[in-house]
Structures are given as structure tokens and as C-alpha cells.
Design a protein around this nucleic acid. Structure first.
Lengths: 347, 347
DNA sequence: TCGAGCTACTAGCTCGATCTAGTTTTGGTA
DNA sequence: TACCAAAACTAGATCGAGCTAGTAGCTCGA
């Protein structure tokens, strides 16, 4: 028995060579093709053989090779998602993307944008893994041209649309969000309502516009006050310092929750009480963002619904390339907690 | 010229079939093998041809197929990392893992553990992508047996070692961390120092032990007070309520920063001032965790160094399977800010 | 007894890049 | 000019699973 020598290349790390379908087939006594049939769940195998194959595979510790599979079938069923690990909103979005992706029988590949890996770089990486579709959270408009990518693979932009053409866009109605915030504050009796904006961040332009329009509609055009901000606590802090220096409003709407941290940091150190001295409304209602002693009033985006829509759009575009891309904007909802209150000066 | 019909299978999503090395070779007028040589950076191609090939590839929009590559070479150079998207420490760790991984010429595949995807599931997924090594942040000890995985692929556990045998472990010296915290507080004059522990979370046992030992060494064995906690703000809040009900210490050391949020939440609502009424020390010094009006004293782990060591261990075990696994514990460092102060009752 | 119509199964080409074992070209030297 | 080694390049097998086209064996009806 000149033992069939299995001592092959055995690349680094290959402890014992992984078993293949051929190994399973030999072990069970059937053809390779049949093993393939069983693992694909295709028809053409009797129930008895199916069981024997599965048992044999389990005994050998066989695992289907996704590389070979993807190569031959020319499908990976991979969906890539680009996001920033530091943004609570995006992280929450990613978590809710998993169930949607599974529902359609795809796999989710995470592409993390970090200070050292920009969007273009991450896209390139995900395409190397042959993702069949990409979901981009908070796409960056300048420089990184996603247009050329959209030719290669279906693209879904979340938060805002930056790429003209064949791209799906899933976002929330940002203008409506800040409008709700203004409505609520005006209803409480506020007039001096400032907005710490989000600069060029995703959704920020519309949030700014919604604020402006709502103020105007309430006859408070002369009270409009937009302070340059951003989506970080530093930006919120800087804007807060500016407000303190130039004179406080009775209420502030920030462009996102993260900026609230900086705002509160400055406010607390300045001896202000929230909401007695200042009402505050954030945006995103981040679940992971807890502020000690404070329950933040914030505008909530329907993340699970958005995730589902984004995946659905990508899958649809993958499987029916001819259909037209859509753009949807879900209505957000103001969640009132206790950082908003009738202002002191109101009688 | 019966136009060579390129209208192949064109799976769903395949807009225009992706160009292959054969296409590039034909376009440039060389053999497939040579194109391969150029893209691998192997020697055996003249500088002139190398340029022509690269230009031709760029013109066609050619991208190397990682599936075919991995299949044939039996190497993917993928490293998988398991982590929890919600844990700031682990997220920060992941960010620092990228540069290390690149340095060794590998790719990082993120495996996110979420409430709906447990560790075992994520491991399975990463192995499907043929990761050659796995880095597990905060490995779960019970149930999910990683032992069997360690036979298939090199395993590095970060935070604590839970799997006996051929596994590398990279962690910080947790006992030393809480010891430093106790030392600092005792030095300030505290005696009634409580510890809100981390339950069964990674590192929590050693942090608890370090606290106990340090207290004993300072002759404060009778002051030892460990309250059941966890790594979440809820756990911190619950423990804080218990402390309030049973009588406050003058200082509290939590098992991680996240728990501090809950602790402060309860403390602030109870009208306590920090650090005047209560000194607080956290663990991890999370960069992304900012508390308004508060600069938290915390124990910092050297994340970049740990990430580098983890990757190095994985790569070493992949490329030199025979070397013995190691276990290292880096010294943490207490970062003193302003949540600690001499207690009021001290003269 | 034949063959039609099944089900259960198999042979062997294929996906795209890698890699071994060659072959041709080049350039330098006797 | 002849020769040789090195450099530049190529043919073709190969990785593991998927898939098409086909065969073997069975049942059933006429």
C-alpha cells in the first residue's frame, strides 16, 4: 500500500492540508460531483446518500472553499459596507445590516474607514474581495470619485447622495428632522434658537436648511443663527465656546449627538444647567451614547428600516441590473426626553 | 473575423465581464504568465515590458482576482479579527491593527460580534474566507470552544487567555493596572476605596485581584469592598445604586470606562460632585469616550503595542508553525486627570 | 420484451491566476 | 564566429468546486 502521499505544498500555516470535496467523495465512496450536489442543496441525490455525504464531511472536518466556489460560479454573494468605526450612527447601522443581508442570502464584508485608510482605499480593498455590491455610509463627496466604481458594481449611498447617475440613495429626511426640533422648541416658547451645524458632513446641509426654513416659517427669520460645527465633540465644544462668547441663545440644535458632548462639556464647565439655562436637541439618538445624568432629546433615524432598504436596493441592482436606481428619504422622529424645557425668560 | 464572442455567463451583477490576465496579455501582446510575473512583482520581466503590462492593465481597468489567486497559491494572507463593535477599547484596537497587518503584507478581515452573531458564528464565517490566522479580542470562555479552531489556524487571544494549548495571548497586566489605581488613591489619602468589578469579562478577574492585593498591601484589607459590575453603563449604574444604598466610599475604581458612565449618571442625579464627594478611576482610557465636564482618570493600555504584538504573533505562527506560542502582558499606565482628589474627611 | 421516463449518479471541462519546467533571446567573452 | 550563461519570456498543469452533458439502473405500461 504505497500510501498516496498527501504531502503537498502545504503553504505556511497549512497545518494539515484542508480536506476537499475529493477527500469527502473518496471517504464516502461517491463522486466529487455528488458531494458538490449535496453541499449546494441541489437536487439529484437520494436522501440516504445525502446523509452519508454530510456525515463523511463532518467526520473529516470538511469546510467548503469559498475561493474555489466563488471563482467557478463567478459569484461571491458578498456585499461590502463602508463605514467609520468611530461614528455611533454608522456602527449601529452596520449591526442592523447583518440581518437584512442574511435574509437575502448574502454575506457582509466590513470596510472600515479610519484616519489612515480613506474611502477610496477601502473601496479598492472591498472590490478586491469581489463584493457584488457596495453600501457606503456617509460617502465623502470630494476627491474620492465613486462614479467610476458605480460602473463596476451597484452602489448604495446612505446618508446623502454624492454620486450622480446610477446610484441608489437611502437617507432620512434631514430637513424634516431639524424642522421637528425647531417646532418642538418654538412650541415650548423658545425664540432664540441656534443651530450648531455639521459643516460638510453627510446630511448636514439639509439639517441646516430644515432649521432655516422652520425658523422662517415660525416668523423667526431674524433669530436664525447658524454656528459652524461638525460631527465631533471638538467641533461641538468650539461652537459652544463661540456661543458663550457672543451671547447665549435659549436653545441649541446640534447637527448630531456627538457634537452635543462637546457642547455640554463647555456648558457644564461654564456653570450652565441643562435644560434650565439651555435647552439642547441632538441628532441621531445614538443608542451607544450615554451622557451621565442627562437624557438627551434627539432626532431619531429609523436605522433598521434604512438598513433593510439599503440592502434591498443593492440586491435588487445586483440581480436585476436593468431596474432604475431609487432615492428614498425616510421620515425621522423627534424623541423628547429631558434636555428641553420652557425657557426662563418666557412668561 | 468571426468576432470572438465574449458574451459569457455574466452572472447577476456582472455588468461587463471583468477583464482577466488573459485579456491584458492579449492587449499587450505577451503571455499570461508574464502578466502574472509583473503583478506578483516577481523577477523575470524587463523593465520595459513591466511598464507596458501595467499600462495595458490600467487601460483595461484590470484588477487581480483574489479568489483565483488564493485558490492557486493556497494562500490568502488574510488575518481575521473578532471584536465587539460596541466596545471602544476593541474598536481602538482594531484601528491600530491595520498598520501592523499591512507591515507584514497581510489583509485584515473584520469579524463583528453582535447581539445576534456570537463568537462561534463569526469564527466560522472568518474561516470560510480562509483566514490564515485569527485574533480574538475579549474571547468568551464558556461554550464557544476555540480549542478546535486552534488546530485549524493560529489563534491569538487578546485581553485574556481562555484556551489552553497552542494559543498566543496578548494582554495588559490587569492586576498592575488596578494596583496603580489603588496606590494613587491611597497616596491621596483615601482608605474607603471600592471596586466595581467586571464580572466575568476579559481581564476583570485580574483587575479584581490586583485591587485586593494592593489594598491588602496597604494594610486596608478590612476596607476591601468589591461590588458586582460589568463592562456596560447599565452595570455601572446598578453597582452605583448599590453603593449609594449601602453607604458611599470616598473613591471607586471601576473595571472599565464604560461602567463609569453609569456610575456618574447615578452619582450626578444623586447630587454628588466629582471628585469632591467621590473620586473615580476608570480602566482603558478610551479615546472615544468623552464625558461632558469631566476628565476621567483612567488606566491606559498600550493599544498600539498590543496590536503590533498580536499581529506579530499570528504572522509568526503562520509562517513558522513550529515555534512555541507566547503569552505577554504589557504594563498599563495610570493617567491622572481630575476625577481624583484628596477626600474631604482626610485632614 | 421493449422502451419511455424517471431518479441517482458520474466524467470532465471550466473559472482566473500561479508556478514549474521549459524555450528563446540577449550580451559578453574566448 | 562560436559558445555560454543569464535574462526574458512561454506552455501547460494545477488549485477546489460548479456545472453541463451524459450514463446506469429502475419502474411501469403495452
Amino acid at each position: 500500500m504505497a500510501g498516496q502521499d498527501r504531502t503537498r505544498g502545504n503553504a505556511p500555516g497549512g497545518r494539515e492540508r484542508k480536506p476537499t470535496m475529493a477527500d469527502v467523495a473518496r471517504h464516502v465512496g461517491v463522486s466529487r460531483a455528488l458531494v458538490s450536489i449535496v453541499f449546494r442543496g441541489a437536487e439529484g441525490a437520494s436522501e440516504a446518500t445525502r446523509q452519508r455525504v454530510l456525515e463523511g464531511a463532518a467526520a473529516l472536518g470538511y469546510r467548503r472553499d469559498s475561493l474555489a466556489r466563488g471563482l467557478r460560479s463567478n459569484r461571491t454573494r458578498n456585499l461590502g459596507i463602508l463605514f467609520d468605526l468611530r461614528r455611533p450612527f454608522e456602527v449601529e447601522f452596520v449591526e442592523h445590516t447583518y440581518p437584512a443581508v442574511e435574509k437575502y442570502g448574502y454575506h457582509l464584508l466590513l470596510g472600515a474607514v479610519t484616519p489612515h485608510r480613506n474611502q477610496a482605499r477601502v473601496v479598492e480593498e472591498l472590490l478586491t474581495y469581489r463584493c457584488e455590491g457596495l453600501i457606503v455610509l456617509g460617502p465623502e463627496p470630494d476627491g474620492d470619485r465613486l462614479e467610476s466604481i458605480a460602473d463596476e458594481v451597484p452602489l448604495v449611498e446612505v446618508g446623502r447622495g454624492v454620486t450622480p447617475g446610477r446610484v441608489d440613495v437611502v437617507r432620512n429626511d434631514d430637513a424634516l428632522g431639524t424642522r421637528q426640533a425647531v417646532d418642538h422648541l418654538v412650541h415650548l416658547g423658545h425664540r432664540a434658537i441656534a443651530h450648531i451645524d455639521g459643516g460638510t458632513n453627510p446630511g448636514a446641509r439639509d439639517r441646516r436648511a430644515g432649521y432655516r426654513e422652520a425658523m422662517t416659517d415660525h416668523g423667526l427669520a431674524h433669530e436664525i443663527r447658524v454656528v459652524a460645527g461638525g460631527y465631533t465633540d471638538e467641533a461641538g465644544a468650539t461652537a459652544a465656546r463661540q456661543l458663550l462668547a457672543e451671547g447665549l441663545p435659549t436653545a441649541v440644535i446640534t447637527a448630531n449627538d456627538q457634537a452635543v458632548i462637546g457642547l455640554l462639556d463647555v456648558a457644564v464647565r461654564a456653570g450652565l444647567r441643562i435644560p434650565e439655562d439651555l435647552s439642547v436637541i441632538g441628532y441621531d439618538d445614538s443608542r451607544f451614547l450615554r451622557l451621565p445624568g442627562i437624557d438627551l432629546t434627539s432626532v431619531r433615524q429609523d436605522i433598521p428600516a434604512m438598513a433593510e432598504l439599503a440592502v434591498q436596493a443593492a440586491v435588487e441592482r445586483i440581480e436585476l441590473p436593468e431596474t432604475e436606481p431609487r432615492s428614498v428619504a425616510l421620515p425621522p422622529q423627534l424623541v423628547v426626553r429631558n434636555t428641553t424645557k420652557t425657557p426662563k425668560n418666557a412668561e
